[in-house]
């Protein structure tokens, strides 16, 4: 329990640091953000009102404390562009992002796990080499190119899948699955290729360990050795990379979202940056950082479950 509390405490400290960075963002950008956001629609009265509303006319420390205070209560300000609350905008994008990230992770695991383990068990054989080459290609392929190829194949040529759009999972699960398939495969193949290589080397390392040799020499069946002694121990380093991949996908994947017109956080940030809508950019960065920390926290807690020694050593 103390371990859990300590880890949660760490995460909160980091999150506090993130709020400082997010807050500083507006002040580090050269020029006056309100003036820039208004662009050619400049009007002195509107300008003064916006500046006051965003609190930019007050002392820096006071602004930060006020920002932190309202952020804690879920108030992240209002968008410069539409006047809508940033929290509302972020929440409207979250389901699309989370469902795509989870689907992408599932694809990645389905690809990476069998391939990684298989490749490690056939270490040095032709099949291992093939898996390694394929995963190297998977890591190297640009995601927009992969996305285009999928659209050309499954939408334009075969006509099986719709090339774009999003339907909430809660509204129509079948239609959701049809529409999430290509973006999830695009994400999953890239992430899966990276994970395959990690799983392979991790399993290889454990295969050479003393306890595995002992288990084998005890006459345990191969499946038991593999399941209980190899894979479980190989999981620890793999968990890290799985966590990082999931957190990255949760942060929004701009290219994939743009190509498939997926209404996630990535496109929101892209549009907001282009329009210099700082409250939205700030809110999104904060949300993404919080999700990243949450995923890492969960990964750390899982470590402790997989390998009880971790609890003691920290």
């Amino acid at each position: 329990m103390a371990f859990v509390l300590r880890r949660v405490g760490h995460s909160l400290v980091v999150l506090l640091g993130v709020t400082v960075v997010v807050f500083a963002l507006v002040h580090l950008v050269p020029g006056d953000p309100v003036r820039i956001a208004m662009g050619t629609r400049y009007d002195p009265d509107v300008y003064a009102a916006l500046r006051e509303a965003s609190g930019l006319d007050r002392p820096l420390l006071e602004q930060y404390v006020a920002y932190l205070g309202s952020a804690l209560t879920g108030d992240l300000g209002v968008s410069f562009r539409s006047g809508e609350p940033v929290t509302t905008i972020l929440l409207s994008r979250l389901p699309a992002t989370v469902s795509l990230a989870v689907a992408g992770l599932v694809v990645a695991l389905v690809v990476a796990f069998p391939l990684g383990v298989y490749s490690a068990l056939h270490h040095g054989k032709a099949s291992d080499v093939i898996v390694r080459i394929v995963s190297q290609v998977g890591v190297s392929v640009p995601d927009f190119w992969m996305a285009m190829l999928l659209i050309l194949l499954f939408s334009s040529t075969l006509g099986w899948l719709p090339p774009s759009g999003y339907v909430p999972l809660t509204e129509d699960p079948v239609e959701w699955a049809r529409r999430v398939a290509m973006p999830a495969v695009t994400l999953g193949l890239v992430a899966g290729s990276i994970m395959t290589r990690y799983i392979r080397s991790s399993v290889l390392e454990v295969l050479g360990a003393d306890h595995v040799r002992t288990a084998e020499s005890k006459g345990l069946r191969e499946r038991v050795v593999l399941g209980r002694h190899v894979v479980r121990n190989a999981l620890v380093p793999v968990l890290t990379i799985v966590g990082v991949q999931l957190a990255t996908m949760l942060g929004g994947v701009i290219v994939v979202e743009v190509v498939f017109a997926w209404p996630g956080l990535g496109r929101l940030v892209l549009d907001a940056v282009a329009a210099r809508d700082y409250p939205v950019v700030q809110g999104a960065v904060l949300l993404v950082a919080a999700m990243f920390l949450l995923v890492n926290l969960v990964v750390d807690l899982l470590y402790a479950r997989v390998d009880p020694r971790i609890k003691v050593s920290r």
């Binding site: 285009m148 659209i151 050309l152 939408s155 334009s156 006509g159 719709p162 090339p163 774009s164 759009g165 743009v258 190509v259 498939f260 017109a261 209404p263 496109r267």
Partner: peptide, 18 residues
């Protein structure tokens, strides 16, 4: 009005009847 930023996707969607 759907927002589809990538022209290739928009044209594929047109061809697919979406």
């Amino acid at each position: 009005f759907q927002f589809i930023p990538e022209p290739t996707t928009a044209l594929a969607a047109l061809a697919a009847g979406e």
